[in-house]
Design a protein around this nucleic acid. Structure first.
Lengths: 348, 348
DNA sequence: GATGGACTTGCAATCGATTTCATGATGTGT
DNA sequence: ACACATCATGAAATCGATTGCAAGTCCATC
């Protein structure tokens, strides 16, 4: 039922084997399989048929070596200091899914590279392994300088993250500041005034969300209170602990803008455990709109990032860069998705 | 700040360049970088230092070609007939994350291969591309015969899915029948008697879950009603539609055992829209325990699969197969996680 | 029938790293 | 001082596919 005729198990076929079967040279087979116009159509089809029936597939290592091209894109996830941290962040995973889709659509392979960003030269080693034709880095993490330095020598790289003044690498990201403004403006419109920020502003993307938070507050004539800045880490456990500490601290607050949905959901759990009601006592807004956000209880109001579009944009820019173009960075519009976790408008 | 000394941009360094820098031959460099005992320690360290300072990294294509070994594992997702379907299934993604973790832990690369299973010989082409040293297939889909045929020639493959009598490939999966029995037994203990099954029993894994469903019913003296078998497809939309049709059909039912959490959540949405209350009117149990299940409202009772353990098991077996072992298939125990979606015990 | 052009086809070099085999250098034991 | 074992090192073959160059074939035109 399958198309294989030769069941030969041990040594895989090479091009010379097909050449022998077709009574031509390996050069001719190579050209025929590449659909080269140098080989007349009749012979081309004949050779292709023989190769298909023998179940022959070109050895990719040899091909890559000769062509100096792997037709592979490396998707790099810079892993935090926490050694052995699992890739379970739903945001990473969803982005990875969309990227894989967009890349395989162009008949390129996807190589996943987890890399502890702690060791110096980590990105350089990836670049120089020549395993890929281009690199997509998901998240700047705290590696802005490394990315900048690499970009000056290696053009085929696109980074997911916030745009930073003077950066030399090509980035694609949501308008983080705009998203932050929208989220906080919404909370203000609900009558909230003591709005806490949960997240680490040192990370570029989070910093921009925080800047938007500050802008919206100032626009409403409110000076941001440093006591309401809670440097919550990205892991669920750390976020839960930070939110618990905030609730226990006695600092008055009536709303939270979290730097990610995961942090927001952890915060809601912590608040509920502390006897605070969401959204009655505390309104909560997240960022990302991961699949879990809509299903959570209460459903999470959040700033949505369109990851499908983001992935397509990144892949598109990357292929233009591989082709030699110099592409600018791109910023995608965020969208505020209002759900139950921040209450109805004008409750006050 | 970086370890690179030579900023040379255009041509990547090759081993011969390092050989020139170190005043030795390429053979010696190769041996030194491989920590071969043939090179005295002092010289070995010196060459390693020179290579590191030059930022040299071995070209992987050349290495793979020569060694006939890529140090790469292909993770294959057989994609359904629905052309262009996104990889957004949270189950796939979570499994992928755990696999990537386990594989990179062994310093192997992860190659994601999406493959339309429609074209004949799809798995063969992957095998013969020699791009990987081993293959992990996530989900049998409807490709049992193809997997069986491939396994007879290619040992380095492990498949996630149900174990089928007489299968020739190595599979790792949850005890699907046991999970189905546990779920249905729980529903029965709540006093439910008209329990519907949502899912396609033609797929091996789902068939086993369905078998467990039937066993539990018969053990309680209930003959399964064919009208309560709803062949819901895996996509959210199809599942929603199937559940809506069930509710509208007038067939009486008081519980649902869904073949996956995604189907269960879609069904809950459909029932709620149809005016049925969950869990008061209908108890719902899912399968998988995806992250979303706990956060859903009502929280979903489900049969949990430990994907971290599953992934580690698969990778462990695969590496033993690559080393030449003949490993048996493995079955992992499922765990019933009781949450709100099926009501409190003994409500009747 | 000779010349030229278009078309086929294959030889051999190449991509970069690894490893076998051979050679030369060094040291040890008697 | 000689034979022999041990160590250090490199030249060259190899992995498998691609492609520049050149040689060969065929046919049309003058």
């Amino acid at each position: 039922m399958t198309t294989t005729r030769q069941t030969g198990g041990s040594t895989p076929l090479k091009m010379a084997d097909i050449a022998r079967l077709a009574q031509v040279s390996a050069s001719t087979v190579s050209r025929a399989l590449a659909d080269s116009a140098l080989i007349p159509e009749a012979k081309r089809l004949e050779i292709q048929k023989i190769a298909a029936e023998a179940g022959y597939v070109v050895n990719q290592s040899a091909r890559s070596l000769r062509l100096r091209r792997t037709e592979t894109i490396a998707v790099v996830l810079p892993i935090g200091h926490e050694a052995g941290q699992l890739i379970t962040d739903p945001f990473f995973l969803e982005m990875l899914g969309h990227l894989a889709d967009a890349i395989t659509l162009r008949d390129y392979q996807v190589l996943i590279t987890r890399m502890a960003r702690t060791s110096p030269g980590w990105l350089d080693r990836i670049v120089r392994s020549q395993r890929q034709d281009g690199i997509i880095v998901i998240g700047q993490s705290d590696q802005h300088a490394v990315l900048d330095e690499t970009a000056s020598r290696y053009p085929a790289m696109v980074v997911w993250g916030g745009q930073i003044a003077g950066q030399r690498y090509c980035s694609v990201g949501t308008d983080n500041a705009g998203g932050g403004r929208a989220a906080v403006a919404h909370l203000l419109s609900l009558g909230r005034r003591r709005i806490a920020f949960l997240g680490q502003p040192e990370l570029p993307e989070i910093g921009l969300r925080h800047a938007g938070y500050q802008q919206a507050l100032r626009q409403a004539g409110i000076e941001p209170d440093p006591a309401l800045l809670v440097p919550a880490h990205f892991t669920t456990e750390a976020a839960y602990e930070a939110a618990r500490a905030l609730a226990a601290s006695g600092t008055p607050f009536d709303a939270v803008f979290a730097a990610s949905d995961l942090i927001a959901l952890a915060a809601i759990k912590a608040f509920t455990a502390a006897g605070l009601r969401v959204p009655e006592d505390v309104s909560v807004v997240g960022f990302d709109d991961v699949p879990m956000a809509a299903g959570a209880s209460p459903a999470l109001t959040t700033v949505r990032q369109d990851l499908g579009r983001a992935a397509r944009t990144m892949v598109d820019l990357l292929f233009r860069r591989i082709a030699g173009d110099e592409t600018p960075s791109a910023t995608l519009p965020p969208e505020l998705v209002v759900r139950a976790s921040c209450g109805r408008s004008r409750p006050a």
